[in-house]
């Protein structure tokens, strides 16, 4: 049977994609951020997951307001990256795992989650930057996994509640664990942490709130479900709502997790950047 071995979180700021393209990992501005990843590389090299479920939010590449799904699951054999309009380099395609996608879709709808299946789904920086951070070199990396994108709506209110996000993750976890193949799966929760790009409050970052979230997502994710969406915008900024993706990831991991590594750095671009490695406890 398929096994979930752990969860990874990272911010997915587009500027990181540019920094990787320009090989600026050791520049003084970038080093404290990129230094958060080698312990995760070591863990991934040891455990070699076959599939990465990449939970992110599309920022207007695959999905537009004409038809905006709350939860969209990729069901393709391959996912292409495309021009997003403002200049990060386009990357080669990512290999999917369509049979596992359809198993997850069947299982989750059976579990009463009304999701949208996507047989074509261009993936943007929200998906690609975490893949680059965790598996440098992408397709040239010896252990590069197959990937399944899952996008949640944080573009337009009403967005999902934090409780729904955590419950989604729990259902996702049940779906993966019921897959008959003996594969190892890692769950990525990307985006966040606190930031706001729009309005007179642009540049808002809330370190105290971010650090509280990083603590509670390990020890007591249920307590975070008491935060209303409006309060999340107030405390984490308008785009800090991407923390929903971390909640979805956490739900899939089970009750108890072992926090192996974490890093937090301000600022990367306009954002409080958080990275975590949570190992599942059998």
């Amino acid at each position: 049977m398929a096994k979930i071995i752990g969860g990874l979180t990272t911010s997915h700021i587009p500027a990181v994609g540019n920094a990787i393209a320009r090989e600026q990992q050791n520049d003084p501005y970038w080093k404290p951020f990129f230094d958060g990843y080698p312990p995760i590389h070591a863990w991934l090299d040891k455990h070699k997951p076959d599939v990465a479920i990449n939970i992110y939010n599309d920022h207007g590449l695959a999905l537009f307001l004409d038809q905006m799904p709350t939860f969209a699951i990729g069901a393709a054999h391959e996912y292409i990256n495309e021009d997003e309009g403002w200049g990060i380099p386009v990357l080669p395609p990512f290999k999917g795992d369509a049979p596992l996608s359809w198993h997850i879709i069947e299982s989750m709808v059976d579990d009463e989650f009304d999701i949208t299946s996507c047989q074509e789904m261009p993936v943007d920086h929200g998906f690609t930057v975490p893949m680059q951070l965790f598996w440098p070199g992408l397709g040239k990396h010896p252990n590069f996994p197959r990937a399944i994108p899952i996008s949640a709506n944080t573009v337009q209110h009403p967005i999902p509640t934090l409780k729904r996000a955590l419950d989604f993750g729990k259902a996702l976890g049940r779906a993966i664990r019921s897959y008959p193949d003996d594969i190892k799966v890692v769950i990525l929760g990307t985006g966040g942490m606190s930031h706001q790009l729009d309005g007179e409050r642009a540049g808002f970052i809330n370190k105290e709130f971010d650090l509280m979230c990083m603590e509670k997502i390990v020890t007591d994710p249920e307590s975070l479900t008491k935060i209303s969406r409006r309060e999340l915008v107030r405390q984490a900024g308008a785009q800090g709502t991407e923390f929903l993706m971390w909640m979805m990831m956490r739900g899939a991991l089970g009750d108890k997790v072992n926090p192996i590594h974490q890093n937090y750095h301000i600022p990367i671009s306009n954002t409080g950047a958080g990275t975590m490695m949570l190992e599942c406890i059998d």
Binding site: D198, G199, V233
Partner: peptide
């Protein structure tokens, strides 16, 4: 809190319906 999701947050526009 769930009922007042249109209450303003300073310098922030909720992109809603």
């Amino acid at each position: 809190d769930e009922f007042d999701h249109h209450t303003p947050i300073e310098g922030t526009t909720f992109f809603d319906g």
